Simulated scan of single mutants.
Amino acid sequence: MRKFSIGFAVVSLLVAGVLSYFASGAPDGLDKTVEDTGIAEHAREHPLAGSALADYALGGDDAFTGVAGVLGVLVVLAVSFGLFWLLRKRSDVR
């Protein structure tokens, strides 16, 4: 299980850090539809729109998309590991 977990983490970090630079910057289908129908004119920014990792980039700079992806993966892995550790089945419980 340890080898699988380490392999999963490495692959996740590679996908987030390397492949994210090849992702399209063009809006996806939902964003395109919202823009075409005029709904975007009535939309408000969410409270975290100005945060450091907003729009899948570090500080809004597309050059740091991979860094933002790696940070996101690390946060998800840390939270997941913490939850699994807290919820694990303990052998000393009778």
Rank of each mutant, 00 (worst) to 15 (best):
I39C: 07
V67H: 00
S20W: 06
D55Q: 15
P27L: 08
A16C: 12
L19S: 01
L71S: 08
A40S: 14
A23E: 03
E35A: 15
A63Q: 08
L71Y: 02
Y56R: 12
T33G: 04
P47L: 08
A54Q: 09
G29T: 05
L30N: 06
S20G: 04
D62I: 10
G60H: 03
G50L: 02
G50P: 03
S12M: 15
A40I: 12
L13Y: 00
L13F: 12
V34G: 00
D28T: 07
S12C: 15
G69F: 04
E45W: 01
H46S: 00
G60P: 04
L13V: 07
G38Q: 00
V18Y: 13
G29L: 11
H42T: 13
L71A: 14
A26Q: 12
V70C: 11
G59E: 07
P27D: 03
A43M: 11
V11I: 15
G60N: 00
S12K: 02
S24P: 07
D31W: 13
G59D: 10
R44E: 02
Y56D: 10
A54R: 03
D28N: 13
P47M: 04
G50A: 03
L53W: 00
D61M: 09
T37P: 01
D55I: 13
G66N: 05
G69R: 04
D55T: 13
E35Y: 05
F22I: 06
D31A: 15
F22Q: 08
V15K: 01
E35G: 07
L14A: 14
V34D: 00
I39R: 09
G25N: 12
D55L: 09
G69V: 14
R44C: 01
A68W: 04
D36P: 00
H42Y: 11
A43W: 01
P27V: 07
F64Y: 14
L58S: 03
G38W: 09
S20R: 12
S51A: 08
V18M: 04
P47S: 00
D31S: 15
V70P: 04
L48M: 02
E35F: 00
